[in-house]
Amino acid sequence: MKKKKELSLNTLYRIFVYVVLIALAISIIVPVGWVFLASIKENSEFYGTNPWSLPKGFYIQNFIDAFEKAKMGDYLLNSVKITVMALIILLVVALPAAYVLARYRFRCSKLLNILFMGGLFINVNYIVVPIFLMLSDGDKFVKQITGSGFFLNNSFITALVYASTALPFTIYLLSGFFVTIPRDYEEAAHVDGAGYFRTMIQIMMPMALPSIITVILFNFLSFWNEYIIAMTLLTKDESKTLPVGLMQLTQAQRAAANYGRLYAGLVVVMLPTLILYILVQKKLTQGMSLGGLKG
């Protein structure tokens, strides 16, 4: 008798657990899915009607408007350009640095390790204004010589800032991996006559591939989604990135109530990250236990 009562209590508990989990899952799926549906609704479908009504048809004009009138197409190109450049700069700079900092002892190697660790606590949101002022001072100086600015509204410089601010976290993550490799590999390479550079590029880098992929994934997401730096450093319309363009759309929507275009823009920003996520979600959630923190 008692056994039976325990059993039903247990079932009740399990039902409760499922209800809560499903409710949380719904609270995530529904708003995201709703945006996809809203992006193919005509603007008139947003007025007076129930927001839950299904779209009447596939109104592709929203996407055409978003791309042409709201220039999301140009912003998309800028975003791709900056993200790719920033990732390349980051890898080229951070990989050798992480390797050397993890495996070589030299003068001030300890100090540098501490500094980069401390860099984990510096957040871009504090320093974006000084960076802006520094670049605008640089522009004033360049203008006297060439007549036009160089540092602001420059996608390469923005990519450089992205890569630099991602350095502490990336070096921290990569060094954490390099420390674990046994010394034997390097000694064997030395015996075979490989120099320092060759050892690093041909022996160590391939071994670090899983960590490198994790680094690329995390930084891709943060560069692609970043907008505080972009909004501050890229003020000219032709250099803006997708999230900044989306921000403009949300503000324009408040004034002109052009819903369809806004949701189409949202889909354009979300879709690449969602597709990437679905492809690599295992890698990403595993990588988290590696990093254990994020910036």
């Binding site: 080229v92 700079v93 951070a94 050798p96 640095a97 390797y99 050397v100 900092l101 070589y104 030299f106 540098l112 500094l115 980069f116 860099g119 510096i122 504090y126 320093i127 000084p130 960076i131 002022l133 520094m134 450089l160 800032v161 890569a163 630099s164 601010t165 350095l167 502490p168 070096i171 120099g195 320092y196 550079f197 690093m200």
Partner: peptide, 23 residues
């Protein structure tokens, strides 16, 4: 080797993180 590997990172880190923070 050490210099070539570490310097770019140190320079970028100083210009875009340490100096702005001090500023």
């Amino acid at each position: 080797f050490i210099g070539v590997c570490v310097l770019p990172a140190v320079i970028l880190f100083f210009i875009f993180m340490i100096i702005p923070t001090l500023n």
